[in-house]
Amino acid sequence: MDVFMKGLSKAKEGVVAAAEKTKQGVAEAAGKTKEGVLYVGSKTKEGVVHGVATVAEKTKEQVTNVGGAVVTGVTAVAQKTVEGAGSIAAATGFVKKDQLGKNEEGAPQEGILEDMPVDPDNEAYEMPSEEGYQDYEPEA
């Protein structure tokens, strides 16, 4: 019985440690998101679009440190934060509304985080759909 109880105690310690790591990862992701939003706020009209992409990228980098179902929630929060940063930029006159959601080359930025393969159960990952990809044929 002692062996059984000791095993359960060790398992509990492992769960607590994993929860603490997840909590730490979420806190880091939130900190990076805040950094990115402050970065966007300090940019001029020309830099705002690039700044919004930076927020998304920093958040995406930190999301990889967070495991399990938390990833889905962090990704949703990050996307809403990026959308909010863009709205703030438009409201303050840093950028025109028609410039939001495009990178410096004018290509749409939507789907940055949505296409990231995420499995809350950590069982399997699927690649994003290939609808947006084109076949590449090298020139002879």
Rank of each mutant, 00 (worst) to 15 (best):
G84M: 15
G132R: 13
T64G: 06
A56Q: 06
N122D: 09
Y133N: 09
Q24V: 06
G14H: 15
A90G: 02
P138W: 11
T44F: 15
Q134L: 13
Q24M: 15
N65A: 06
Y136W: 12
Q99C: 09
E110D: 12
D115W: 03
G36R: 15
A69I: 11
E139K: 09
D121Y: 13
V37Y: 14
G36E: 03
D121H: 11
E20D: 07
K80C: 08
V66Y: 11
K97P: 10
V26N: 00
E131Q: 09
V40Y: 14
L113G: 10
A11F: 13
A78S: 03
S42F: 11
K10N: 03
K23R: 11
H50V: 03
T33C: 02
F94Q: 07
G41H: 12
G106M: 07
V52E: 00
L113S: 10
G7Y: 08
T72D: 10
E13Y: 13
I88E: 02
E114I: 12
E123T: 08
E131N: 09
T81M: 10
G111M: 15
P120E: 06
K60Y: 05
A53H: 10
M5Q: 00
V49P: 02
I88D: 04
E126W: 03
Y136V: 10
Y125G: 10
V3I: 03
V49T: 09
Y133R: 02
A29N: 01
Q99A: 11
S42V: 08
N103Q: 07
N103L: 08
D119S: 04
G31M: 15
A89N: 03
P108S: 08
D121A: 10
D121N: 08
E61W: 12
K97I: 14
F94S: 06
V16D: 01
V71C: 04
E130A: 06
S9A: 04
A78H: 04
L8Y: 02
V49Y: 13
T59K: 01
A124N: 05
A69S: 05
E104N: 12
E130S: 04
V63R: 02
D135S: 04
A91E: 05
Q24Y: 15
A107W: 10
F4L: 09
K102E: 12
E20C: 10
G47N: 12
G68Y: 11
A29S: 02
Y39F: 06
E123Q: 12
G51N: 06
A69V: 14
G41M: 14
G132W: 13
N103E: 06
E61I: 06
T33M: 15
E35K: 10
Y133L: 14
S42M: 12
F4M: 03
Q62Y: 04
E104Q: 10
G84L: 14
V118A: 11
G93K: 05
T75Q: 14
H50I: 03
G132C: 10
V40D: 00
K45D: 00
T64C: 09
D98W: 13
V74A: 08
Q109H: 13
G73C: 14
N122A: 04
Q79R: 09
T81L: 11
G68D: 07
F94T: 03
V3K: 01
G7C: 15
P128L: 11
Y39S: 06
A30N: 00
E137C: 07
A29H: 02
G51D: 01
L8G: 00
N103S: 08
P120S: 10
E83A: 07
T59W: 14
F4Y: 06
Q24N: 09
A17R: 10
K97A: 09
L38F: 13
G86K: 11
A76H: 09
K58M: 14
K96N: 13
A140M: 06
S129K: 04
F4V: 01
A19T: 02
V48N: 00
P108T: 14
E28N: 02
G25N: 04
V55N: 00
Y136T: 05
Y39C: 04
N122I: 07
E131V: 11
T33Q: 01
G25V: 14
V55W: 15
A140D: 09
V95M: 02
A107V: 10
V15G: 00
G41L: 02
G132Y: 09
E123F: 12
E110M: 08
A140K: 08
F4T: 00
V26E: 00
E131I: 12
V77I: 14
T72E: 15
Y133E: 11
I112F: 04
K12W: 11
F94P: 03
D98L: 14
K97D: 15
A56V: 14
G93D: 04
G47F: 14
T81K: 02
G73A: 15
P120G: 10
E130D: 07
G132K: 06
G47A: 15
N103V: 11
E131M: 02
A85N: 02
Q24P: 00
E131T: 10
A27F: 12
V66N: 02
E35G: 05
G68H: 08
G106E: 09
V66C: 07
S129D: 10
A107R: 09
V15T: 01
T92A: 09
A90E: 05
V66D: 01
A107Y: 05
Y136L: 09
M127Q: 09
A11G: 02
G47V: 11
T59I: 05
K34C: 07
E130Q: 08
G93T: 05
S42K: 14
D119N: 06
A85E: 02
V37T: 01
Q62E: 03
E114M: 03
Y39P: 00
K12F: 03
N65T: 08
M1H: 00
Q99P: 03
G106L: 04
E28Q: 07
V82D: 01
E61D: 08
D135E: 13
T54R: 15
P138Q: 04
Q99V: 11
Y39K: 07
K21D: 00
I88G: 04
S87R: 03
V26F: 14
P117Y: 05
D121L: 08
A11R: 00
E130K: 10
Q109M: 04
Q79E: 03
E35C: 11
G86C: 14
L113N: 01
E83Y: 03
V71Q: 03
K97R: 13
Q24C: 03
K32H: 09
E13K: 06
K96I: 03
V49C: 14
I112V: 12
T64V: 12
L113R: 09
A56W: 14
P117M: 07
V63D: 01
V71K: 07
M127F: 11
K21N: 02
N122E: 07
E130F: 07
K21M: 13
V70Q: 01
Q79C: 09
K43S: 03
G41C: 11
V52N: 01
A89I: 13
V77G: 03
A27E: 02
M1G: 00
T59P: 01
A30V: 13
M1E: 00
V48F: 04
T75W: 15
Q109Y: 10
A19D: 00
G132N: 15
A30E: 00
E130R: 05
V3H: 03
E139N: 09
K58I: 13
D115Y: 10
E139Y: 12
A56P: 01
E110Q: 06
G14Y: 08
P108M: 11
E137P: 04
N103C: 07
V26M: 15
V77W: 15
V15S: 00
P138T: 07
V118L: 08
V40N: 00
K60V: 09
T54C: 15
Q79W: 05
P120Y: 06
P128G: 06
G86N: 12
E126T: 06
V16A: 04
E46F: 06
D2N: 15
T64A: 08
V49L: 13
D2A: 01
A69G: 06
D121M: 10
E137W: 04
K32C: 03
E57W: 06
M127V: 12
V63H: 01
S87H: 11
T44V: 10
I88N: 02
E105T: 13
P120Q: 11
V95L: 13
A11N: 00
I88S: 02
H50P: 01
V15Y: 15
S87P: 04
V3M: 06
Y133K: 03
E57S: 05
Q99L: 10
L8S: 00
G25P: 00
A140T: 11
G106F: 11
